[in-house]
Each structure stands twice: as structure tokens, then as C-alpha cells.
Computed example of a mutant assay.
Amino acid sequence: MKSLESAIKESTVSGLKFEGLHFEFNDQSDHMAYYDQILKKNQQERRPLQGMYPMDVQELFQKEIFIPKLELQYLVPNDQNNLPDEAYMNDLETLIKEFLNKKPLPNGLYAVEIAQYKEDKLVRKGVYYVRMNNHQVVEFLKDLS
């Protein structure tokens, strides 16, 4: 997790600020049976945290069970305060792509939570899901279903 966070920490995109990194549990993954199998085995062996430890986070990331969630803050430039929602969303997707495409991130699925601020006031918060391949955003998903 530390190497992932250090790869993301430095923002070179104007208006976007990295706030933190967490993991999100994806119960919609096609590999939930695999997760359940590990959990059951660990519970039978009386492993810590009700069987949730140890688990290979890298493997669970590759199977899209654990998804890194990047928290970003977006300060809307004054000249864009009155953009219509569609224009704002297009602009934001472009900024997210620009931000992530410059990072040496492993292939996989990521959640990107954006907190939008206008003049220090939080006006909107939402989550995008993006699929990365060869250090490029290749797909935006509205949700995981």
C-alpha cells in the first residue's frame, strides 16, 4: 500500500490534490467464491480478525475484490464556477485521466473519490471507477454492478 500511495502522492495536475488512499471491498467481484474459500479456511485455522488475516492483498486486488480508493480534492477554477454539469463532468474525467495516466499504477480497477470545492466550500462528492491498463485509463465505470 505504501508503494501505491507514494506513486500517487505527487500531483502534477492543476486543481487536483491527493488526500488519501484506502481500500474498498467489492462484493460484486466475479471472484467472491475465491475470497469466501480463503476466509473459511482462515476461520477454521482460527486466524486473526475472524479469518480476514492473512490474505494476499495483491492477489485480491488482481481479482478486483479489494479496490484501491484514491481520495482527491478538486478546487474548481473561478472561471469554471458556472459550467453546466455535463461540461463539468467531461472536464473532470479529463483531469482524472491526466492525473492517473502520469502514475506508474499496476493494471486493475481503482475507485476515485472526488470532493469538488468552489471557493473552499464542498459542493459535490462522488466516486468514479476506472480501469487501468499499461499505465493508462482505459475505462470509466459509473458503478460496479
Rank of each mutant, 00 (worst) to 15 (best):
L4S: 06
A7E: 15
I8K: 09
K9V: 03
T12K: 15
V13I: 14
E19H: 10
H22Y: 14
H22T: 15
F23W: 14
F23K: 07
Q28L: 06
H31Q: 13
A33D: 13
D36V: 06
D36F: 15
Q37W: 09
I38G: 01
I38K: 08
Q43A: 08
Q44G: 12
P48G: 05
L49G: 01
G51E: 01
G51N: 00
G51F: 04
Y53A: 04
Y53H: 02
D56P: 01
D56R: 01
E59A: 07
L60Y: 05
Q62S: 09
Q62K: 11
I65A: 11
I67N: 09
P68G: 08
E71N: 14
P77C: 03
P77R: 03
D79T: 01
N81S: 07
D85V: 11
D85C: 00
M89C: 02
L92E: 02
L92T: 02
T94I: 07
I96S: 03
K97R: 15
K97T: 12
E98N: 12
F99T: 01
F99P: 00
L100I: 15
K103D: 10
L105N: 05
P106I: 02
G108L: 09
Y110S: 04
A111Y: 06
V112N: 03
V112E: 04
E113D: 04
E113Y: 12
Q116M: 05
E119Q: 09
D120Q: 14
D120F: 13
V123E: 08
V123H: 03
R124L: 11
G126N: 11
V127Y: 03
Y128L: 10
V130I: 15
R131S: 03
R131H: 04
N134F: 13
N134G: 04
V138H: 04
L141C: 00
K142S: 10
L144H: 07
S145Q: 12
S145C: 00
